[in-house]
Design a protein around this nucleic acid. Structure first.
Lengths: 242, 242
DNA sequence: CAAATATAATAGTAATACTATCATAATTGC
DNA sequence: GCAATTATGATAGTATTACTATTATATTTG
């Protein structure tokens, strides 16, 4: 069924035009009980996105979440074994969704250059409209990933969580974009580094633009961040013509 | 006195050859009582670096620190009003120290290109030898900044802390390196973005190399990270010769 | 050597992540 | 349609945390 969709005649770029029936896959080891399997699970995921986005992951507590959905801490812990795992679930969901966006944005495009341009847009553009994918607010989730995702791997648990597969969606996405880089320049030595740098760099630059503007040269109005990273990528992988 | 040092005939690059008498300035609003003013303050800073490096900032507690230096929580809180402020102090110290390293690495160098190369090395190279600057273990502090510093600004307190000047040493450093970029190409539009991306990107790539290698193309043995970022920078700012 | 200051000792608060237990509600299998 | 299973709620509890308050004892300073 997914394959069928990929062959639709006109594939649109923007995420809000994606069909909402595609199942987003998240590693089952990130939850104790699939939140998609019940109303409560759905409320947990949906409301945790609202809450983390509103108050930040540090101030976010399972108790606050439970109160917000008229449930109890114990019930939440039946779905996610920890606050960390819940965050990992959300981030993993995000990258799985980004992978679909990438597929839709690049299918039937013959030019590798255009494909890479579109991938960079997907990565560097902040979602500005309040759109939902089922019960998930994509703008808020996007915002969470931008500000909280480094915390998911910059800790002492990273190896343990990596073994669980917590970062495999992220890695898959990076590798898919890296593959486009390799199409354009098979000799370029650092495609994965380049793409992971663009991803994390774009997240940070968005944060800096808003809070520490002296670290950037980007205005909030124009898409300087996209321009900047696009420039970096294409200059880096350009094959020298002599 | 500082000025004098800058005019020493032969300026060496490596940090362990810096004189240890240069006072590193840290914004006074980051502490309640200057830790340099007493034995206890020195022990707090010195041991917190050891501890945070060993167990990570999340697991680091003021109680553990107090026990490690045979003191009490209350005493530590007389120097730093919070765990966060202590981290901000350490990071601020780091950037102040990096500024000195930058000055020493670039003084009396006429070529802007060489200056920028040296700056990039300073930024991207991890400190591998256990060297001390007075009571501060530079290797451990370097490691802390690489893994914990994003947490210092990726939170809801960032604006408040920014007003205190918590990030001014970092900004100063970024701007000093950006100035070299501008020397090389006055028309380049994103010097600050470029340098802050290189700094944060290099930190992350070091972490990825160790924990999530699929996100990189760097081996731990070679200086691929330096090569990669050096390549990015010089290609990005190259003036097109047609 | 008195006065000021720094530190230690001790206790306490409110909040946190997470666990345990048991009762009740909702769903399912037959 | 009803028993058995499962999901949730209610409630309580643990150990730990960041941080504060208070008082006593060192240590330094004028």
């Amino acid at each position: 069924m997914i394959v069928l969709l990929l062959y639709l005649p006109k594939i649109k770029l923007l995420m809000f035009e994606l069909p909402t029936t595609i199942p987003i896959q998240v590693n089952a080891k990130l939850y104790l009980k699939d939140p998609n399997s019940s109303d409560l699970g759905i409320k947990i995921v949906s409301k945790s996105i609202d809450l983390i986005n509103a108050i930040g992951f540090e101030d976010f507590t399972i108790r606050k979440l439970a109160q917000a959905i008229n449930s109890t801490e114990a019930s939440v812990y039946r779905y996610f074994e920890s606050k960390q795992k819940l965050l990992l679930y959300l981030i993993s969901w995000y990258w799985s969704w980004m992978e679909y966006r990438l597929v839709f944005a690049t299918t039937n495009i013959s030019s590798s250059k255009v494909k890479l341009e579109r991938a960079i847009s997907l990565i560097t553009d902040k979602i500005e409209h309040d759109e939902k994918y089922n019960y998930i607010n994509l703008k808020k989730l996007n915002s969470i990933v931008f500000t909280e995702s480094t915390k998911s791997f910059l800790n002492k648990e990273v190896d343990k969580e990596n073994k669980l597969g917590a970062f495999s969606e992220y890695k898959k996405f990076v590798e898919k974009v890296s593959d486009i880089v390799i199409e354009l320049n098979p000799k370029y030595k650092f495609p994965n580094m380049l793409i992971s740098t663009v991803i994390e760099g774009a997240h940070l630059q968005h944060h800096f633009t808003e809070h520490l503007p002296r670290l950037t040269n980007a205005s909030t109005k124009e898409d300087h961040i996209q321009l900047f990273f696009s420039d970096i990528v294409f200059k880096s992988i350009a094959t020298t013509k002599k």
